[in-house]
Design a protein around this nucleic acid. Sequence first.
DNA 1: CTTGACATTGCCATGATGGTAAGGTTCAGA
DNA 2: TCTGAACCTTACCATCATGGCAATGTCAAG
Lengths: 142, 142
Amino acid sequence: MPPLPAMPPLPLEPVNIGAAAKASGVSAKMIRHYESIGLVPSPGRTEAGYRTYAADDLHRLRFVKRARTLGFSIKQIEALLALWSDRRRSSAKVKALTEKHIADLEARIAEMLAMKQTLQHLAHQCHGDARPDCPIIAELAR
Amino acid sequence: MPPLPAMPPLPLEPVNIGAAAKASGVSAKMIRHYESIGLVPSPGRTEAGYRTYAADDLHRLRFVKRARTLGFSIKQIEALLALWSDRRRSSAKVKALTEKHIADLEARIAEMLAMKQTLQHLAHQCHGDARPDCPIIAELAR
DNA sequence: CTTGACATTGCCATGATGGTAAGGTTCAGA
DNA sequence: TCTGAACCTTACCATCATGGCAATGTCAAG
C-alpha cells in the first residue's frame, strides 16, 4: 500500500466533527487538539455550539494528516502549512525542511539499527533453553 | 563506539545520588524517578535524608542504564531485572523478551524507512529553487 | 560564619495520542 | 409526542521517559 493512500472525495457541505474525522483521517479528538494549539483555525459553529467544517477546513486537515503520516512533527507541519498558503514560497524552503526531516529519520533509524545489531548478536549467542546462562543478561550486568 | 561502552569501576563505599548518577550514567532525576515507580528499590538514607547507594544499588542502576541504551522499555527492564535476580531463570525467557524487542525495533525501523523512501522520492523531484512549484507540497495537498 | 556545591520534594513541560466522565443536541422511529 | 441512540461539548487524567525550575535543607571548606 502506498504511504499516502488516496482518500474518498471531500464533502462539499459543511460537516460536524465526526464526519470531518472520517473525511480527513484525523480523529475528532486530535482535530480539537490541533485547533487548541492553533495548528488549524477554529471552524464555524452551529447555534448549539457544534463545530462545522467546510471543504477548506477538511482540505487542511487532510494536509496535516498526510504530513503526520510522513512523520513530520507538529512544528514542521506548522511551517509546511505556512508554505502551502504562501503563493510566493520558494520550493527551496520546502525541500530544506523535508531534507532536515529525512536526516532526523536517518539518525533515528541508525540508532535503532545499532540497537538491533547488538541485540541480534546477543540473542544469537543465547541458547534460549531452560538453563539460566544467558549472554544477554551477562552483558547487561557486565 | 560500542553500544554498551565500558564504564569506570563502581565505588565500593556507599555514595550520594550525584556520585551514583555519575557512576551509573543515569541522571539523579531519573534515579529518583525509577525509585518512585518501583523499578529500583529505595536505597538507604543518611540521618539528614540523603539517599546512599551501595555497590549493589549501583550495579542495578547500571543494568537499567544498559538496557535503556539498548532501547528496552521500562516494563521490559522490570522483567529483565526479575530474570536477572532469578537464579532459576530460563535463558529462553530472556531470549524471547529480547526477540520481542527486536521485532518491535524492526517494525519501527520499517515504518521510518518507508517514510524516508517516500520523502526522498518527493525531495528528489523538487527543484529546490526560488520558484513555488513543489511536488512535496502538491503531494501533501493532493 | 559564609559560601558553594550538593541534597530534598513537588510541580510543570515535552509530543502525540487515547480514555473517560458528565452533560447538551439532534434526529428517527414507535 | 416521547424516547433512545448517536452524536456533540468541555475538562480532566494517562501514557513514556525525560528535563527543568523553585523553595528549602545539608555539608564541607575557606
